[in-house]
Amino acid sequence: MSKKAKGVISNQLRKKRFEKDEMTQQELAKALGVTRQTIAAIEAGKYSPSLEVAFCLTDIFDTQLDELFQWQANDSDADKD
């Protein structure tokens, strides 16, 4: 039986930025070493970052990964053999 990972990843990045002294996307991009457009794409849910970037984000915001990113599985697809 195989499980195909299908679902939606949402995130609290924008909220966390504002909680951290209204950090700008540009400042976060500089801290992470990525472009501002990548931060915008992550916030909009149009790009899922690598685990390395995700863990760097948890370090920057001093939080847990599941507080920053949430996984909503699509059950109808996930249960297919």
């Binding site: 991009a29 070493g33 990525v34 472009t35 501002r36 457009q37 990548t38 970052p49 690598s50 970037v53």
Partner: peptide, 10 residues
């Protein structure tokens, strides 16, 4: 003044 010109998304 962008630090990174190309990142993992690119």
């Amino acid at each position: 003044d962008d630090i990174s010109l190309v990142d993992e998304r690119d």
